[in-house]
Amino acid sequence: MYWINTIIQGALVGGLYALFATGLSLMFGVMRIINLAHGDFIVLSAYLAIVVIDGLGVNPLVALAIVAPVMFAFGYVLQRGLLNFTLGGDILRPLLVTFGLSVVIQNALLELFSADSRRLQLPFLEMTSVRIGDQLAIGLMPATVFVVAVVVIGAIEILLYWTDLGRAFRATSDDIDTARLCGVNNRNIYAMATAIALTVVSIAGVLFGIRTIFDPTIGPARLLYAFEVVIIGGLGSLWGTLAGGIILGIAQAIGAAFDPSWDTLAGHIVFLLVLLFRPRGLIPKTFGL
């Protein structure tokens, strides 16, 4: 029973990791941008939520209703005004620019919010749990995070496969010139992709901030998890990303069950094993690449 519990808790955390990875996967799929500032955008969203909560006295989920559109707009402007200019040439350019963004965001957050650890408070969600049997209880918070992850990934799947915009994402990812000949403004499509990616990031960031403490410097570690999830699940596959998140979550939970300091290590080991034996991931390629 102990192990079943461990696995379930790990899988639920995996939902959060999948959310971390979804935006990264979307930006890479559409534009081949590896966004090294991805983790810092997650942290930035959490701090934005703090600003909204302090300013309006609302709870974190209400704050998300403001943070999400702000991040959408920020993503659009960021892509249109900056990242678009890094595309089309050397692959190093977007890497360097997003790496620079990462440094800037971390330092700006340190300057504005200090290095103290913060947390978003939502006692109702954190404290409530549903008891299943004698020794098994599922917290409302992890369950909510997992359900949100499934809903978000499902929504992006629908967007990609059932809408004009999603079709344009896939077509542009395949062949920029031919997509433009069909009337696609690729600069706008890229901006929409980043806007949507950062909207997902804002959801991930707020849920992350409710779940655990954060400070301005922890972005890169979230980026690492996001990377691992994408690689484990298979590049370009969103359901693979969910599977990758669950696997990483379970690996960390099992590692932590042996020794609390092993959780991250166990995740890395599983990631390396997948890279070794299934380098294309578990569910490779449904769009892009």
Binding site: C182, F287, G288
Partner: peptide, 13 residues
């Protein structure tokens, strides 16, 4: 477009 089926290719047009 290789990752689009026939109908989606036409719709892209």
């Amino acid at each position: 477009f290789p990752s689009l089926n026939v109908e989606d290719n036409l719709r892209m047009g």
